[in-house]
């Protein structure tokens, strides 16, 4: 069974949000359009809409995260949901409770939605297969597999600033091998019609046969970002040096760090993105991170609207299925 099927109901509506792979262009556009409608909510004096009133959202983080969890938390609260934040790494998993048992317990607490972050690829899909049918699962990042809400907020940012996708050159730079963000972005950009997607990095950080996903591979930054409209920098983890994939952060910055001088090779109006948190002086120079072409903080802001859109859509599908609501995603 394909992931694309598991996350849709029989009518093709979004029931879970597990990965970008297999979703249609129309559905991605619908998410982006909904996010547009949620974006102004954050600017209001009362930053709340009642769409998820009475619903309980459980943030299940099996792996530490600050940014993603905070924005999911805010998104759920702005939709008026009750939110349960569970740092499972520190509790059940260490006591030997199985993943399945943890899920059964949360189901028994009558949660409606699980936002899951897990260190193992496929975890969100596994959980979606395990849970009771009235529960929706949103993937907050599984291993190196997918991080679909991050990819959606990235393409939301790109659409806002570049309007169309069908003429863009997008470069994804850095640790593609270990990046769920990169994989989801590649799927999203392809589905939305971006004709030129490049991955850039040393051979140790580019996984084999990545070309099969519809990208070109470049091993120098200069070549990879030449003429690019969008440059997405990935975070480099310290572990990559320990596992002999790279000699040092210093050398990495020298070869692949984005500096103002190098950015000149990209298109004049190129935007610079980063899923955060950034390592200044490792993958990106401060002058670029804080520069006029950087849209890194806009990404964070948009992340809330995108997550509100996804959460409201899956809950609307559940309401239509189980008849306990209007199935609305209206903001007003």
């Amino acid at each position: 069974m394909r992931a694309g099927n598991l996350q849709l109901d029989s009518q093709g509506r979004l029931k879970h949000f597990l990965g970008i792979e297999g979703l249609s262009r129309e559905l991605l556009a619908e998410i982006l359009d909904n996010a547009e409608r949620f974006a102004p909510v954050g600017d209001r004096a009362v930053k709340k809409v009642p769409l998820l009133r009475g619903k309980t959202v459980a943030n299940l983080f099996f792996e530490p995260s600050t940014r993603t969890r905070t924005t999911f938390d805010l998104a759920a609260k702005r939709l008026s949901a009750d939110v349960l934040n569970l740092n499972i790494e520190a509790s059940s998993a260490k006591k030997g409770e199985s993943l399945t048992d943890t899920l059964r317990n949360l189901e028994a607490m009558q949660c409606d939605m699980f936002v899951v972050r897990h260190q193992t690829s496929g975890a969100a899909e596994f959980i979606a297969r395990q849970v009771a049918p009235h529960i929706s699962v949103i993937n907050g990042g599984d291993g190196r597999h997918e991080h679909p809400t991050q990819a959606m907020l990235d393409v939301f940012t790109i659409r806002r600033l570049k309007q169309r996708f069908t003429h863009l050159k997008v470069a994804i730079v850095g640790d593609v091998a270990h990046s769920r963000v990169a994989r989801s972005e590649i799927h999203a950009l392809r589905i939305l019609g971006v004709p030129d997607i490049r991955v850039v990095g040393p051979k140790t950080l580019i996984p084999p046969r990545i070309e099969d996903m519809g990208v070109s591979v470049h091993h120098t930054l200069e070549e990879g970002i030449a003429g690019a409209d969008v440059v997405i920098m990935l975070r480099l983890q310290q572990e990559r040096m320990q596992s002999a994939l790279l000699p040092s952060a210093h050398e990495y910055f020298r070869e692949y760090g984005l500096t103002a001088a190098r950015l000149k090779r990209a298109a004049k109006d190129a935007i610079v993105m980063h899923p955060g948190p950034i390592n200044r002086g490792v993958e990106i120079d401060s002058a670029v991170a804080d520069g006029v072409q950087s849209v890194i903080l806009q990404q964070v802001t948009y992340g809330i609207a995108v997550r509100m859109a996804v959460m409201s859509m899956v809950m609307a599908t559940q309401s239509l299925t189980f008849g306990n609501g209007q199935g609305s995603t209206d903001v007003d």
Partner: peptide, 13 residues
């Protein structure tokens, strides 16, 4: 197996 599928799924190969 380290190949197109492991790369797509992000499963160490």
């Amino acid at each position: 197996h380290e190949g197109a599928t492991s790369t797509r799924l992000g499963v160490p190969g």
